[in-house]
Simulated scan of single mutants.
Amino acid sequence: MDRHTIAVLVNDYPGVLTRVANLFGQRGFNIDSITVGGSEEPGLSRMIITTGGDDHQIHQLMKQLNKLIDVISVTHLSKNPFVSRELALIKVNAAPSQLAELNAIVEPFRAAIVDVGPSSLIIQVTGDTEKIDALLILLQSYGIIELTRTGSIAMARSVVPAPATV
């Protein structure tokens, strides 16, 4: 099953998120991640949803989303090049004496240690899902106490115009 990223522009009203989530459940789709926030347009919010399914299933799901009254537009971001990022905070078992060792692990990921306690520390990392997953694998040996992730946010890349032919 392929992973798909869908952007849904919706009216910023109470209950819209519930209606969208219910549609996924009624159609038998699992939402891998969902992020919702304001958009460039006042009164509208953008949902970025990642889910699995084949192309036909996703096409049908998008048609159903477009039928919801508060949905303004639905874009299948995975169809074209797009940029996707996540944020994760990871609390790891570690003594202050291990700070330099852990710093050496997180630095290549452009991650940062944002809190140090007597027996643990918190690491902040942003990037695509695969990058965060790779860092988590490296940190498992220290013992991950707690993990929180934002889910993907995404945006279509700018289209580069084709060169003019003479």
Rank of each mutant, 00 (worst) to 15 (best):
V8R: 05
V8L: 04
V8P: 03
V8A: 11
L9F: 06
V10H: 11
N11C: 12
N11G: 10
D12G: 06
Y13C: 08
Y13P: 00
Y13M: 13
Y13D: 13
P14W: 14
P14I: 12
L17T: 14
L17E: 08
L17C: 05
L17Y: 01
L17M: 07
T18R: 14
V20N: 06
V20D: 04
V20M: 03
A21C: 02
A21K: 00
A21P: 00
N22E: 09
N22M: 05
N22C: 01
N22T: 08
L23S: 06
L23N: 09
L23G: 07
G25N: 09
Q26G: 00
Q26D: 03
R27A: 03
R27F: 00
G28Y: 00
G28Q: 02
G28H: 02
F29R: 14
F29A: 10
N30E: 07
N30C: 03
N30R: 06
N30T: 09
N30M: 02
I31H: 06
I31R: 09
D32A: 10
S33K: 02
I34N: 03
I34F: 03
T35G: 08
T35V: 02
V36W: 08
V36I: 10
G37N: 06
G37S: 15
G38K: 14
S39Y: 12
E40I: 03
E41Y: 11
E41H: 07
P42C: 11
P42Y: 07
L44C: 10
L44S: 10
L44Q: 15
S45F: 06
S45Y: 10
S45W: 09
I48A: 14
I49N: 09
I49K: 09
I49Y: 08
T50S: 15
T51P: 06
T51I: 03
G52V: 00
G52Q: 15
G53V: 04
G53E: 12
G53Q: 12
D54F: 08
D55S: 15
D55C: 06
D55W: 11
D55H: 14
H56Q: 14
I58T: 04
H59K: 15
H59F: 07
L61C: 04
L61P: 02
M62R: 13
M62W: 01
K63H: 11
Q64L: 12
L65P: 13
L65Y: 12
L65T: 06
N66I: 03
K67Q: 11
K67W: 11
K67F: 11
K67Y: 11
K67I: 06
I69W: 00
I69S: 02
I69T: 07
I69Y: 00
D70P: 08
V71E: 07
V71N: 05
V71F: 08
V71W: 09
V71T: 05
S73R: 13
S73C: 00
S73V: 02
S73T: 13
V74W: 02
V74F: 10
V74T: 15
T75F: 01
H76T: 08
H76R: 11
L77P: 02
L77E: 05
L77I: 04
S78M: 08
S78F: 12
S78G: 15
K79S: 15
N80C: 01
N80Q: 15
P81V: 06
P81L: 14
F82L: 08
V83H: 12
V83R: 12
V83S: 12
V83T: 13
